[in-house]
Design a protein around this nucleic acid. Structure first.
Lengths: 247, 247
DNA sequence: CGGCCTGAAGTTGTCGGACAACTCTGTTAG
DNA sequence: CTAACAGAGTTGTCCGACAACTTCAGGCCG
């Protein structure tokens, strides 16, 4: 499934894993572009394109006339700008992900969901409600909404611990990116019960709209995270480089 | 100051502003690479490199044999992955930024600051403490720490409403990127007083370490935002494209 | 008439080579 | 001892060519 990428994407991926594995440490100088290209039997153009991708992601920094260097950039425990599901998030901390109180049903779309999914207000949509656990401890309360003609409630119950993303992808709806809004909050009575904490417990809520590369919104989700369960991190670029005039 | 970038960066910036200004709307097809290059009297290689940057940022999407298209991606009100100061953040909402209770002094570095700035535990560092206001309303409580030999307390008081970033840049310390940790919280007595809210008020706290392109940490900051003051957003990439095996 | 096939045109992907611009180091001239 | 210089090494840009793919229109065949 990953073989159909363009060459520069594969090259970029190889470089990324070299950096992540520590084979190329922060501060290290990469081999020269001609050398890298020759070793892999590709043209310098393609290798350059791959390095350009890494540069934009902030993994490396080029210095004209000098070389390309790995930036000092910590491997983020869980990067908000990357979008893997809650299961992967839990698994990355070394704990065992699980699910409780799973329900899937047709419900009238709440206003903000209807707007995001571009359906009529109150139209029936599929809602998947789950409490996610880490080593048995309840840490995240999630609700996912998607259009009823995209996925039925039954299909969502079938997936077990599989990701909603893969269920959508099986229907040809590949999530390309999402827009998330982050807000702090306190647990209301129902959320507190579901997460087995006291009412008013600190939460971090992530509201997210996922869409395909064509911009078609396919999934709306709301995740209430226990405040002490995860430390969300994000790399912030600029000022100095990419930022010029804002607005 | 912005003239010393490489050509592809300037080209990318021009394309970005074309998209942001709406001249190139989501879904639109860009002119072909040879055409874009010819119009600007640059080579196709450079134009391609610029488009590759935009592609990595998620602004456009390439389709082999078809063309390059602007992605449906909303202009985020305030994007967590971008790093402008709190003043710009407030200004972007249309309100007037201001400062209250500004103090700047030498203090012994708290443990996490000392570690981040790579100085001895308890060493003297410059600490700038400010309450930021929007149209007079107190919305953010911030503390910035930096090494005493980088900026003195007096220099930080001089800058008035200027950014700490520009003060650092004037000393040759250009902030290239920062790593932020986002946590929800409740206001303690002191923070509540400074922000003029009830004790226990909801906060969103952003702890951030800013560093130069060489990876030298130059600024540590802690911002307590009133929960209802801003809606922080972030674009999350993948799964489907850049994500392969995680761990 | 409808559907399939084919071909051409247009676009992005990759290649190879060349030279300019810049950095860095070591040597030499003052 | 310092400063200027020369050379090698590296990234930045340019050019031209062809391959791979998409799209669409036109013609063919059922």
């Amino acid at each position: 499934m990953s073989t159909s990428q363009s060459l520069r994407h594969k090259l970029a991926q190889e470089l990324r894993s070299l950096i992540r594995s520590g084979e190329l440490a922060p501060g290290d100088k990469l081999p020269s572009e001609p050398e890298l290209a020759h070793d892999r039997a590709v043209s310098r153009s393609s290798m350059r394109a791959a390095i350009t991708m890494l540069e934009e992601e902030g993994f490396v920094r080029r210095r004209h006339g000098s070389g390309t260097y790995v930036t000092h950039r910590p491997a983020l425990p869980n990067d908000l700008s990357r979008n893997f599901g809650v299961s992967s998030l839990i698994a990355s901390t070394g704990l065992e992900p699980g699910t409780a109180e799973e329900t899937s049903e047709l419900v009238p779309a709440p206003a903000f969901v209807a707007e995001a999914l571009e359906v009529a207000d109150g139209a029936a949509v599929t809602a998947l409600s789950r409490v996610r656990t880490a080593d048995g401890r309840r840490v995240v309360d999630t609700i996912d909404w998607c259009r009823a003609d995209h996925l039925s409630p039954a299909e969502l119950l079938d997936l077990g611990d599989g990701s909603v993303y893969s269920a959508l992808a099986a229907r040809g709806l590949v999530v390309h990116h999402g827009v998330a809004t982050i807000t702090p909050g306190n647990a209301d009575a129902e959320t507190a019960r579901r997460l087995d904490v006291a009412r008013g417990a600190l939460l971090l809520t992530i509201d997210q709209i996922d869409m395909t590369a064509e911009g078609v919104p396919v999934l709306v989700s709301r995740e209430h995270h226990l405040a002490d369960a995860f430390a969300f991190m994000v790399v912030r670029h600029g000022p100095g480089a990419a930022v010029e005039v804002q607005r």
